[in-house]
C-alpha cells in the first residue's frame, strides 16, 4: 500500500507540506520589503512619460496655444469630455474673419484617457501629462478650462 495513503503517511505528508509553506513565508519575513512609500517619495518617484493622467494644452510664454478650434477632438471624443467654445475674429490685416478658440473645457471627471483626441489633433495642441494628483472635494473642480 502506498505509504502516502496510510494514516501515518498522511500525517507526515501534511506536516511536510505545511512546513514548506512556513519556510517560504519565513524567508519572506526577513527579505527586504518591496513597498514604495508614496507621499514620502514624491520627489524621486518614477512615473512613465506615457502615463495618461490629465489632458493639457501646451502654452508658450505668452499664454498662446496652438489650437485652431477645428473641433476634431470634441467630435472624436466618445463621451463628450471636451467642449469647445469658439468665436469669429476678423483679422485686421487681411480682413478675413477667422474662427478662434474662446474656451476649451475638459472634464477630467469623465475622461476615459483613450487618446483619440490627441491622435486626431492636427496641430499637436493637446497632450496628456502624468500629473496624477487630482483628487478634489468638489465635482465642479474637475471641469477644467485648458486655455488661458
Amino acid at each position: 500500500m502506498d505509504f502516502k495513503k496510510t494514516y501515518i503517511g498522511r500525517v507526515i505528508y501534511s506536516l511536510v507540506s505545511l512546513t514548506t509553506g512556513l519556510k517560504t513565508t519565513l524567508i519572506e519575513f526577513f527579505t527586504p520589503k518591496v513597498t514604495e512609500q508614496y507621499p514620502e517619495n514624491r520627489k524621486t518617484q518614477h512615473i512613465s512619460e506615457r502615463h495618461r493622467a490629465m489632458l493639457y494644452m501646451s502654452l508658450d510664454e505668452n499664454g498662446n496655444n496652438k489650437c485652431i478650434a477645428c473641433g476634431l477632438c470634441a467630435n472624436t471624443c466618445p463621451n463628450g469630455t471636451i467642449t469647445i467654445k469658439t468665436k469669429m475674429v476678423t483679422d485686421e490685416e487681411t480682413g478675413k474673419s477667422k474662427k478662434v478658440l474662446e474656451e476649451y473645457t475638459y472634464d477630467l471627471g469623465c475622461c476615459m484617457f483613450c487618446q483619440l483626441c490627441v491622435n486626431v489633433c492636427p496641430k499637436d495642441a493637446i497632450a496628456f501629462n502624468n500629473k496624477y494628483e487630482n483628487a478634489v472635494f468638489d465635482r465642479s473642480k474637475l471641469v477644467i478650462k485648458l486655455n488661458k
Binding site: Y13, S14, S17, L18, T20, G21, K23, T24, T25
Partner: peptide
Amino acid sequence: KEYNDVFTNNIITQ
C-alpha cells in the same frame, strides 16, 4: 516555485 511551496502544494489547498 514560491507560489507552489506556499499555496499549491499545501495540504489544505489540496
